[in-house]
Design a protein around this nucleic acid. Structure first.
Lengths: 344, 344
DNA sequence: CTCCTTGATGTAAACGTTTTCCAAACGATA
DNA sequence: TATCGTTTGGAAAACGTTTACATCAAGGAG
């Protein structure tokens, strides 16, 4: 004899407990407002009936979606960056316990991305958003600021001056450290494979590299500063350009995927990564541990970031000023097998 | 002079168009029900005011969540499997255009997973679910069947007899083909690193392997059938066991991550993958193209599967019988560089 | 004793839709 | 002209909450 499964209503609970629905609601949302005795009775009944407030009733009444959104851009043919999965996991972890849901939308190309944000915002489907992989001038951020929608960015957007909440990992520091490390090992011939300029982090990482070089008084060869598109393929292709007669003794890559492409190019030339040519990546994606040799890289704590982003968003939803929610984390250099002293 | 931004209400549209709200609703949901003239007028006004029906009003009234759910299990320390990201992308693509949202929840360990499903369905947060990575007896599926919640499984659950909707990729065929390929190359000493038995696909993949061997009259060495946990680490560890005095000439792995671990173990022993020892994986995850050598594997079309899963779920939400929604796809063997004829 | 404060509860009005009835208008048919 | 389907549109009742406001009893201060 199963209890009536079809989801007890707040009315049902109220009737069964001999109180008004208002009291039931108060018991759940503001317990101190109701006397201990009735509170217990109501709780007991609610428990027994397996009552769960209907989220749509609540959402309608409160005028909130009780949902935060994340838009994942997914290249049509290829695989999406696994960094999103880690971020997503972190967001999920942060959201557990809090009553909010996580809405994920995927967007094909580049420009439609903004349209996707508009759909979520104008359709009132989310109370707030997480914006990932920020650009130098990020139209998504501009839009959200204009609309006054709470959001928090993973990464900054340097050309946007209005204050907004962000959590960034300091790419300048990251690559400054990586470069210093290479310099200390004795490298003087270091090449750089950067990211497309539209991304906000591209310039930062380059600057870290340049700064370390300048401090050490090491000349910067313009022809050794290249720009890839963050794919393995582009790392592979650009490395081939680099590996002429007198190749650099080290290559810094703005992300791990490109570094993986570089490793492949090196192997094909019979150059051992970490011996003839050192390679350092950025991100510390999972597969970085399983390349040959394991990739030295700059570690980004994506999952922790996801958790923190949720906290920051929550703060905003409770009215905290976005301008006060700005953090920059310093990443760590993790050395595995793809770097070593130069052999010439 | 911006138009009044704060989201036009259906009342507002009705007033402006000089009709009742009922008519506005009809124009949007059942256009034929209203005369051409007023329909056009209403549409024009709605357009001008940028009217978007409030999803919460609609959801409450219709008693539906207009949302489908996906639960991603995420190992506490490590990275989640990137297969989920691809599936997610496919789901997102399938959902675009349809009015449904995608809710993603992440769950830490093993048992709590069911609790997570319960939270979503008992809290009426979703109309339907996608269940991924099915188990031999999948408690999630049993639960959803019992509750009568629409869902569609990616993979089957062989020990559940009640009919339900699924889309599976035939692991038996996949590994039958892979094994036949190795046999044709001349291999006779083939080891197998399987998946934990709880997963439904584990048995299938093993059977494909066994069948091909039996057909060819090749003896099966029990000590060469191992069980990993799907991680690179476990592939690495188990491969070390295998690489004793007289190692197998080929190793079949139930997923790519373990195969990547195997590649590493081989390198450390100075054995060239595809030469001294052939390796074939399963899944065709992105990084399979960038291992050294590129990994031969069995391709699973995750993204297409995601799209199809959405269609199947939609069919169910429209009342179609789940028992008629069952598909098994046959995967393709993709040969890259990690297989070759045996060298002894 | 009266008056005022406090605490605990109930009443009823939202929140923004969809949908069930009805009623009016309109042709067409007899 | 009276009758009758058929469009067309409006009025109003949900859907399940939260919350402003009112009520009422109890208790303390004067």
């Amino acid at each position: 004899m199963s209890t009536n499964r079809s989801s007890a209503d707040i009315r049902r609970v109220a009737a069964e407990a001999g109180v008004s629905i208002a009291t039931v609601s108060r018991v759940l949302n503001d317990p101190k407002r109701v006397s201990l005795k009735t509170r217990q009775r109501v709780l007991e009944v609610a428990e027994r009936l397996g009552y769960r407030p209907n989220p749509n009733g609540k959402r309608l009444r409160k005028g909130r979606a009780e949902t935060v959104g994340l838009v994942i851009p997914s290249p049509p043919g290829r695989f999406a960056d696994s960094f999103f999965l880690e971020l997503l996991t972190g967001l999920g972890e942060g959201l557990a316990g809090v009553g909010l849901d996580l809405l994920v939308a995927t967007c094909p190309p580049h420009e439609d991305e903004l349209a996707c944000y508009k759909r979520l915002v104008e359709g009132k489907r989310v109370d707030g958003l997480v914006v990932a992989r920020t650009r130098l001038y990020d139209t998504r951020i501009a839009y959200l600021l204009e609309q006054g929608v709470p959001f928090v960015a993973h990464g900054r957007s340097d050309q946007i001056k209005t204050p907004y909440a962000y959590l960034d990992v300091d790419g300048r520091q990251g690559f400054y450290r990586a470069t210093r490390h290479l310099l200390q090992l004795g490298h003087r011939e270091i090449a750089f494979i950067g990211a497309p300029n539209e991304f906000n982090f591209a310039q930062h990482r380059l600057e870290g590299f340049q700064l370390a070089l300048a401090e050490a008084g090491v000349a910067l060869r313009p022809e050794w500063i290249l720009e890839g598109d963050l794919s393995e393929e582009s790392g592979y292709r650009l490395a081939q350009l680099l590996l002429g007669e007198l190749p650099p003794t080290a290559i810094l890559c703005a992300n791990d995927l490109m570094a993986i492409g570089v490793l492949r190019a090196l192997r094909e030339r019979g150059l051992r990564p970490g011996r003839e040519v050192s390679v350092i990546g950025y991100d510390d994606i999972p597969q970085a541990q399983y390349t040959d040799p394991p990739l030295s890289t700059v570690h980004q704590p994506f999952r922790e970031a996801g958790r923190r982003l949720v906290e920051m968003l929550l703060d905003q939803l409770e009215g905290k000023d976005a301008g006060t929610l700005q953090e920059v984390w310093v990443p760590e250099l993790v050395l595995r097998g793809s770097d070593g002293p130069p052999t010439r």
